[in-house]
Amino acid sequence: MRRTILLTRDPISELWGMPDVAPSTAMGAIVNFHGVVRATEAGEPIVAIEYEAHEPMAVHQFGLLMNRVEQNWPQVESVSVVHRLGRVEAGEVSVWVVVVAPHRAEAFAACQFLIDEMKQTVPIWKRILR
């Protein structure tokens, strides 16, 4: 399984193109997930979120999650994750996950797994800016 793990202080833009996901001819599904900073938090308006990470550990923990993706869904061909650090304005993309697999079921499941588990184990924290 090919993997990309990137923590970046730059805006996530479609102009980057998809990170290392060019699918082989056996692949039939690409799930492309963008997590976006909402303009409200607990009903109150916010302007941005400031993300902080223990960067080496975050990359390592993303790698462990990708090991589990590979074990659970061996058909998955590639998984890419890009997470913003620093100030991310409301409306901007904070996390981007791309999963390439032969069929949609494993692509959706692997993407959901990665996002859910990330929120439990990857050392990234946020501070709300109002």
Binding site: Q61, H83, K119, V122, I124, K126
Partner: peptide, 26 residues
């Protein structure tokens, strides 16, 4: 280092221990 550990983990000289609140990525 870069791995989670329990409270019964035996430390070694030079270890780097990180303490933090629940994570909030995404």
């Amino acid at each position: 280092g870069m791995d989670y550990q329990d409270k019964d983990y035996v430390l070694k000289d030079g270890d780097e221990v990180s303490l933090f609140p629940p994570v909030q990525g995404g």
